[in-house]
Structures are given as structure tokens and as C-alpha cells.
Amino acid sequence: MKVIIDGIPIEVEPGTSILNAARQIGGDVVPPAMCYYSKLKDSGGKCRTCLVKVSKGSEKDPRPMPKLVASCRTAVMDGMEVQNITSPEVLEARKGIVEMLLINHPLDCPICDQAGECDLQNLAFDHGAVKTRYEFDRRTFEKIDIGDKIQLHMTRCILCYRCVFVADQITDHRIHGILNRGDHSEISTYIHAAVENDFSGNVIDVCPVGALTDKTFRFKNRVWFTKPVDAHRDCDHPGCNGKVALWYKGEEVLRVTARKDQYGEVEEFICNTCRFDTKKTADWVIEGPRKISHKSVISSNHYEFKPLPVVKTNPQLQGANKQQFERDTRL
């Protein structure tokens, strides 16, 4: 099936979502995703940051779709034409969504362990406004411990439901979920029960913000001061193949996570023994330093002011993003 995203054609399998088609193109036309997780079935559609405009439905039915659609949950049709960063409407909507996501977020990045590898931080950096227009108290929750290794700081949560899907699909049973509704909804367990199973640690990796953090790493270090190294061990847990990233500070392994790809999604889920209990270099077979994009804050230690992603070689995209370009460089 042929689909055109921001003027770039690509051939994809039937049933591919627009987001995944854009990821196959790669680069700047990939819509951001806060709740979609390609390894988790039924995830996506909730955060609305990946909204795109379908300017031509398909070859058969060329009518445009009346509303912006969530690209992570909309399958491509043959001949579909999609506008992402070429559509001012999409950029405007996305800015609105980022603002909405941030109004109840505490913005405590300076003390948050997730800072540096936080999807929301990256999103807000690329698409957010400099100042907020929200002048009211933000919702707050008490921190709770779900199990002895994981802490839940609900105040930071953006309710992406990823950790719920992890518990449903990766572990044998789920005991946490969403309580209440609207902006009072919270991730919690029934009467503070502990989340205890061999794969529970994966909720930390899938959390796009710092709502679920690793208690063995809490406040130990900033992410960008640690160096990631690929390693593996012979894990005897069925379902875990022991391929991880070790985060070193000097000689010491500060934390162990699954290996994340460029979209912040883990390549393979790992078990709790690998994550929490094996933190000595001797436990691991080192493969070499993990490749991190040089643009990432983890390798450069700071965010770089850059204009909104624009495909340099595509004149159509440059024209459409002229305004954006000027605004961002002025800033």
C-alpha cells in the first residue's frame, strides 16, 4: 500500500498504522507519541499528541477525514495522503495538547529521576510554549510505594495507561489500574497492595514520565552523568533473555534498564532479577557502549535550541515550515 506522509511516499504493509508508516520514513515526519507503545497491544489513542491530518482518505474514497486522527490507531489506506508537520492545523492542535498535558504536571524536572530521558520533557521542548497560561493549583497526590522496588509519584503521571497494559500483557496478573475519573483519575493499587511479580519492573521503563521510578536508583544521579553500556547475562528466567543496558557512573553500575530504541520503546522486556538484583559488573558480559544519538541530552548533557524539525532536502516542507522556522530561531 502506498501512502504519502508530508509529501514523502512510502510503501507499507496493509494494516500498518500511520504512525508506524511515518516511523518507516523516519526523521522529522514522525509524530510524537506519549501513550502508544508498539510492543503493547491496544495501547495508544489516548494522549492525542500524534494527531495528524488526513487530507486524502484513500485512492477509492479521496474525501479528507473530517477531524484530525490519532495516527497511532488509524490504519493506512491505499493512496492515503497525510499531513503532519506540513499542516499548521496539526501543529496548532499539538501545541494545545502539550499545554494540556503540562497543566497538571508538576514540572519538577530538576529533582526528577526521569529528567534527561523523559518523553514529556522532549515533547514539551519541541512543541510546548515557553510560558503556561494555567494559573490554578495543580493536582497533587501522595507518593506511594508499589512494592519495595518501585515508587509511584502520581502527581507526574499523564495517564498514558502503558503500565496498565504492561501488567495485563507482560505479567501474569494485574493489581494496579486507574481509579476515579476525569482529572482526579489516578494509577493506583487497591488499598496500597504491592505490585509483586517477576516483570513488574518494566512499568518503570514504559512510563513516559517520572511517575514510576526505580527505588534502587532514586536520587542517585542524573541520567546524563551516567554512561550506558550494552550487556547481557545468562538469565534463567523464562521470558527474559538478559539483554540490558547498564548505566555506569565511574566503575559502579547505578541502574539496569532494558535497551530502548530511538522512540524510547524497550527492545525486549527484562525480569526484575536482572533489573534490581544484579548490579555488579562481574554479573554481566559487556558488549560495548550503547549508541545514543548525539542530539540526545544523555550524550550532550544539555538540550540544544534547534528549530522545529524540518526536512532539509524537501522544499515543500521548508516552505510550509517557514513561519515555524522564523519563530523558533528568534527565540
Binding site: 492525542r48 494545545g96 494540556m100 494555567y134 499523564i158 476515579n180 475519573r181 476525569g182 482529572d183
Partner: peptide, 18 residues
């Protein structure tokens, strides 16, 4: 609407309260 928003998607969850 603020009271009845299900809280699943962000514009409605945060926007109605705002």
C-alpha cells in the same frame, strides 16, 4: 462536564477542569 470526563484522553481530561 469536568465531573463526568472519563479522563482517558488528555484534551478533555485537562481542558474541562481548566
Amino acid at each position: 462536564y469536568h465531573h463526568e470526563s472519563c479522563g482517558q484522553c488528555s484534551p478533555c481530561r485537562e481542558g474541562t477542569g481548566w
